[in-house]
Design a protein around this nucleic acid. Structure first.
Lengths: 326, 326
DNA sequence: TCCGCCGTGGAAATCGGTTTCCACGGCGGG
DNA sequence: CCCGCCGTGGAAACCGATTTCCACGGCGGA
């Protein structure tokens, strides 16, 4: 609480400059003095004040992460993977939630920048309306977009190839002999919704007419599922924009006693932990969150180590996970 | 980037002291000067450096949160609720993950304290082994335990009355005419596992013999479910230690074609979002995460506002959510 | 032998705010 | 009329590190 580097230096019989150099492992300190400083720090139970270090060195060794919704297991897993790698690099993580509100997102980013984060990892919640704040932030610190990205080349991005993922699903369904498919997705206000919709329209065999758009929630999945059941003819498969929608669709189908996959096949996207527990277990597309987090952290680390700020987009190939639902 | 409070003061024609007072809304500044300062700050797009403010005022306006597993939707929701309330109070959240490892937890707490967090919100991952680091932290900053707590009165705690929750379940099952019940829980290394087990043993009508203990994972739920199926006689109901276990049990039952709730009833605990989507929808005990987060933040806010550090335990009453599985 | 370089370490400036301390002027009360 | 208090605002100390700048001594080369 009260023990500063001055106390350590005094006890070791050296100047604060030498103590600082010894504690931060810099060269230019005789081994004898170095060990005296370390011994003194140990004896006094010295705990460095990271705030003071941050002020002078203009580096907080902390990083801001902004996600639309922490409680979404997909983002939570992503945050966990990022946190693990940051902790290993002795950096801290400031977490903020945008609740899919660009205005709140702007305030959150502002608060993080005031706190002098060394970099920003951001899942921009809106394809268009997040662009401005993202560009402002990128002018001040390194920024990497995760999972979603804004239109235009504002900052680097690391995510999954959404269109390719949907293609995997559509091809798998075709190989099973599925005739007509429907797509239940989200309005393309974010880039993933857009890419998955585009991917479906390109890959589906002329079936681009049977498309229902809402949001990425289980409630929407339930409503959309009910709506499809009320039609004259059930499609052979329902391709969902993510797992949460798919779980909603499944629960609507179960309520009406429709057998999956016998009467209709259902697929998801993301492979959240609960996809495997659904009845029947959900066929879906796995997003390699570990790889995404690793690449994002790698990009930032490179920037800190002096690499020039190139803006690049890295799309990681997703993987089809075949389970009982299709 | 480069504009400091000195620039603002110079442009407004006042001293930095006056500028500081005006910007932080203190009294003792003539309205005329106050508006001159605010205008200057606006014109220069002044962005205060929170690190500098933190150093002098010995207050970072940030708070550390340590949870065992961010990706667990229960903790993720808790973190989200806390974050929302902190953001409203213009405070930031430093997030750390202990991965149920007391040693990692210790390092995480140390890193947060070095960063001078104003308080710590912690879900101690071990009933016994988390006690020491918790006490050390509590000696430096206000600490509130969330959801779980260590043995002994190290720090305040806010959570749910686990034993009462299990009682609700057992009574509900009894009212349905369930004869024999089994309990699938977790080894009591954390306080919730302990309290739920104790609660079950007290509430169950002599059926304390049919108890299987593992961990709070879906894999354990699946294994335990299979094990129960291999017995001579199926119990009338399976009371699970949390929803994740219950979902695992449900998937094991579904695989063997056992009808829920007709052949066996199943209950969970927590009411995670996926409990309602299970087939059949899961009867469970809802933990009011919003209320827990609100109370924890309220406790800390009171401490910051000068209340004396009383150590108290607040158990919030949980609510039974009856769905189709029981 | 003398000069310059290098390794080491100390004094002090610095980061950018907040807070303390004090001076000044106006006003009310004795 | 004089004294003291209060509201206001400036100068400077301060928070606790890092980093710059410089001094000193030893050593190798000319």
């Amino acid at each position: 609480m009260g023990v500063t580097i001055h106390d350590v230096a005094a006890r070791a019989g050296v100047s604060v400059a030498t103590a600082s150099r010894a504690l931060s492992g810099q060269r230019g300190v005789r081994p004898e003095n170095r060990s005296k400083v370390l011994a003194a720090a140990d004896a006094l139970a010295y705990q460095p004040n990271a705030v003071a270090a941050a002020l002078r060195s203009r580096t907080t060794r902390s990083l801001g992460v902004v996600v639309p919704r922490i409680a979404n297991p997909f983002f939570a897993t992503l945050v966990e993977e990022v946190e693990q790698r940051l902790h290993a690099a002795d950096r801290s993580l400031l977490l903020a939630n945008s609740r899919y509100d660009p205005e709140l997102e702007r305030r959150q980013v502002g608060a993080l920048l005031d706190r002098q984060v060394d970099a920003l990892l951001m899942v921009p919640c809106h394809r268009v309306r997040s662009a401005e704040v993202l560009a402002e932030a990128a002018a001040r610190v390194p920024v990497v977009q995760l999972d979603l990205h804004v239109d235009g080349p504002a900052a680097s991005w690391v995510g999954v190839d959404n269109a390719a993922g949907i293609s995997l699903v559509v091809e798998h369904l075709a190989a099973l002999g599925t005739r007509r498919t429907a797509f239940v997705g989200a309005e393309p206000t974010d880039s993933a919704a857009q890419a998955r919709l585009d991917g479906y329209r390109r890959a589906a065999p002329g079936g681009a007419d049977d498309v229902l758009l809402g949001d990425f929630s289980k409630e929407w999945g339930q409503r959309a599922g009910t709506r499809l059941l009320d039609r004259a003819e059930l499609p052979g498969a329902i391709v969902c924009g993510n797992d949460t929608i798919a779980l909603g669709v499944l629960s609507a189908l179960a309520e009406r006693g429709v057998a999956v996959p016998d009467e209709v096949r259902v697929t998801g996207f993301d492979d959240i932990p609960y996809a495997a527990l659904a009845q029947p277990p959900l066929t879906t597309v796995r997003q390699p969150q570990g790889a995404i987090a690793a690449e994002a952290v790698r990009l930032l680390t490179a920037r800190w180590d002096g690499a020039e700020p190139v803006s690049q987009r890295t799309a990681i190939a997703p993987e089809l996970v075949v389970r009982a639902s299709a």
